[in-house]
Simulated assay, not measured.
Amino acid sequence: MTALRPAPPRPARPADPPPPARRRRTGRPAPAAAYAVLAAVVLLVLVPFAWMVSASLKRDNQVFTVPIRWVPEEFRWSNFVEIWDRIPLATYLGNSLFLSVAITALQVLTGSFAAYGFAKVRFPGRDALFLAYIATIAVPWQAYMVPQYIMMQRLELTNTHLSIILLQAFGAFGVFLMRQYYASIPDELCDAARIDGLSEYGIYRRIVLPLSKPALASLALLTFVNTWNDYMGPFIYLTSNDLWTVQLGLRSFLGQYDGEHAMIMAGAVLSVLPILAVFLLGQRYFIRGIATSGLKG
């Protein structure tokens, strides 16, 4: 018997080259740098609010000191108590709340209903009419301010809340915002509902509106804030002190040669609180609606 010969050793295979190092993606800022920029922007935005709160806790002769003293020497919390006795602030806040809620409800209703017609109903000249209507956003309010006032005066609606409500019940921006959102809803849903015999109003109420809660919340929040902060509208149409909004009421602290700026800042802080509460409650829907309506950056 012949002895078994051992198999010759196999030559060693060359080691695989190390994987190439991954290249860093260029063109995008590092997370730390992005957060730093965002923090700087947030601080820049919050500076006026910080100064407002600081000024509301000072005396009048300390509001405009140079350099700015961010922390008051004496915290005058009494400013927030005294302002309720100096002016009928509760009446002003109630008027602002009434106008904001009424105008917001009407703009959400009219804007969403008109946007449904422009987005889901086919009729001749639809796109041209929509562009013509949206173009009115570019027309400055000062161009038709006087004709509007003459119209309200002839209808004997001046010095009433109804005049402001009627003039602001419709808004081209709301129609544009809602139409952009409705465009993301598939037309097949509406066509299937029409085949099933559902009317256009039924489609709008049962299908489109339930799917549009983020956009409706965004429009409601934007309209509420804009109406709450409106100064020129109430200033032009409201002359009775009982009908004034909080923006007009704070003007009571301004005299011909001087003003009580600490009290004005205290009133401004109180007037910001309702807007802050509304924004915090609808923040989730607001961000989602803006992100899906074509208005994001």
Rank of each mutant, 00 (worst) to 15 (best):
P18T: 11
I275V: 15
N229T: 02
A12H: 08
R126M: 02
L248D: 04
A12Y: 00
L276N: 09
L219Y: 01
P11Q: 12
R25V: 10
S96C: 07
G297E: 15
A119E: 03
A183V: 14
V42H: 10
L189R: 14
E200K: 05
A3E: 15
Y149C: 12
P214E: 07
A291H: 14
L129Y: 08
W228R: 03
Y144A: 09
G255N: 09
A143N: 07
L281A: 14
A135Y: 08
T136Q: 13
A36F: 13
I264C: 11
G94L: 06
G94A: 14
S100R: 00
L276P: 06
M151N: 11
R205C: 02
T292D: 14
M152V: 07
I150P: 10
A32N: 05
Q107G: 06
N226L: 02
G94H: 07
I236D: 07
L270K: 10
V81T: 12
E156L: 13
V269I: 08
P11I: 07
Q256G: 12
Y182I: 05
I185M: 04
L243V: 06
I134G: 12
A7C: 13
L216Q: 00
K120V: 02
R251T: 09
A115N: 00
P29I: 15
L276Y: 07
A21Y: 04
S96K: 09
T239F: 01
